[in-house]
Structures are given as structure tokens and as C-alpha cells.
């Protein structure tokens, strides 16, 4: 009886998660379609595109890798850039780690693999009063619909791109999706200057060897952000007023 009750509670939390992430599903589906098309049109085979989507399961990582694959960037530059563009996953894993403590490692690894921006956003807004086991069900409910809608969208996009005509230039659609992420992230004046500094340096150094322009862009963007943050903090510090 008590066991049944616990199961029912867990199921309830799972479906609560599904219900909350539900409104994001159509958007994620269409995003998946776009990146599926971009993967195939950028020159990946159907097997490669499908494998990448299922295993990597990160829109930013997949779409960011495409221009670098096309331009023949080194593995080191690809690894560095992808790690930086996906730093948020570090933060996410820290934020759910307390609730997953004590789970067997395969389940922990599965929940880690399923971590998504939308799922974590809902998880972080929810109240954390209930038991750890129910929270796990809730995390699963928040993330699983994202996985399903993204994968179905991607696979449809891959199939469509493989059958329908179209030039390699269509892979640029994937970059438009990445640009939309950049615009979404640019919410403060400090962020605007970060983007400008990074973009200008990367464009000026586009022909530099070994991805030098890309590196310079990242360094400039981060440097400008740190400098501006320091200036802002100095402004906030209360001034000593003479008597």
C-alpha cells in the first residue's frame, strides 16, 4: 500500500514535469528539423547525421561543429570551442547533483545525458520540497519530452534533406539557429560588448592559421566582459565622503 502510494506520487511528479515542458515541444521539434537539414546539407552522410544527433544530443555542439568540420579545423580547436560553447552543462550538472546523490551510476549517467536547457529551466523554478526520488521522476519528466521532440524533428529533417534537392548552402540554416541562441543570450549591455568584441576579432582573424581568429575572438569577448564587470563593480562601491 505504502509502496503503491510512492509509485503514484512518482508518476504524478513525472507527468507534472511533462506538462510543464509541454509548451516548448513544438519549438524544439522545429529546431530539430532545421538542424537535421543543416547536418545533411553540410556534407554529413545520413548515418553520420543520425549518429551525431542520437549520441551527442546537443543542438549547439552539433551546429557549432559543422562550420569547423567544413573548414578543416583541427581537432584541438573543435574540442576547445565545443567545450566553451557547452559550459552551461557544467552548471546544470552541479544544480541537479544534490537530488541525484545515492542513485546507481547508470541512472545518474542517463539523467546527465538527458539534461537539456528547457528541462533545467523548469526544474530550477520548481519548489524543492518533495523527496529525492520524486524529484528524479520530475527531472525525467522535464527532460524526456525535449529528447523525444528534438530527436523526431532531427530525424525528419535528416530524411527530408537526404531526399529533397538543395545546395550545401542550406547548411547555413543551422547557423541561423545558433545566431538565435546568441541573440537570446545577449540580454545586457555588457553582453552586447562581449558579442561585438568577439565578432570583430573573429572576422578580422578569419584567415589566420590554426583558428587564431576564433581564439582571439573568444579572448577579446571574455576580456571585455571581465573589464566591464570590474568597472561596474568599482562604480557601485560606496565612495568615502570627506567630513
Amino acid at each position: 500500500m505504502a509502496l503503491e502510494h510512492r509509485d503514484a506520487l512518482r508518476r504524478l511528479r513525472f507527468w507534472a514535469g511533462v506538462g510543464q515542458v509541454g509548451p516548448a515541444v513544438p519549438g524544439l521539434f522545429s529546431w530539430g528539423v532545421v538542424s537535421g537539414i543543416a547536418l545533411v546539407k553540410s556534407g554529413l552522410t545520413v548515418a553520420q547525421a543520425t549518429g551525431m544527433t542520437l549520441i551527442v544530443f546537443s543542438g549547439t555542439a552539433q551546429l557549432a561543429a559543422l562550420p569547423m568540420i567544413a573548414s578543416g579545423a583541427s581537432y584541438l580547436l573543435i574540442a576547445f570551442t565545443i567545450a566553451l560553447t557547452n559550459l552551461r552543462f557544467l552548471v546544470y550538472s552541479a544544480s541537479i547533483s544534490a537530488d541525484l546523490r545515492g542513485l546507481r551510476w547508470p541512472l545518474r549517467a542517463l539523467l546527465g545525458y538527458l539534461t537539456t536547457d528547457n528541462g533545467i529551466a523548469i526544474y530550477q523554478m520548481s519548489d524543492r520540497a518533495d523527496r529525492a526520488r520524486q524529484r528524479v521522476a520530475f527531472i525525467l519528466g522535464c527532460n524526456l519530452p525535449v529528447w523525444v521532440s528534438w530527436q523526431i524533428g532531427s530525424l525528419l529533417g535528416i530524411a527530408a534533406a537526404a531526399v529533397l534537392p538543395g545546395t550545401a548552402e542550406l547548411s547555413y540554416l543551422g547557423l541561423l539557429a545558433v545566431l538565435a541562441i546568441v541573440v537570446q543570450m545577449t540580454r545586457s549591455r555588457l553582453a552586447v560588448w562581449t558579442v561585438i568584441a568577439a565578432a570583430v576579432c573573429a572576422v578580422l582573424g578569419a584567415d589566420w592559421p590554426m583558428g587564431g581568429g576564433m581564439m582571439a575572438g573568444i579572448a577579446a569577448g571574455v576580456g571585455v566582459a571581465l573589464a566591464l564587470e570590474r568597472v561596474a563593480q568599482r562604480g557601485k562601491r560606496p565612495r568615502e565622503t570627506p567630513p
Partner: peptide
């Protein structure tokens, strides 16, 4: 700030 800088440097 690294993710925003990296994505900007990639897209621009």
C-alpha cells in the same frame, strides 16, 4: 562569458 564569446566568434 565564454559561451557567448565562443558562439559569437563562431557565427560572425
Amino acid at each position: 562569458y565564454a559561451p557567448l564569446a565562443a558562439l559569437s566568434a563562431l557565427v560572425a
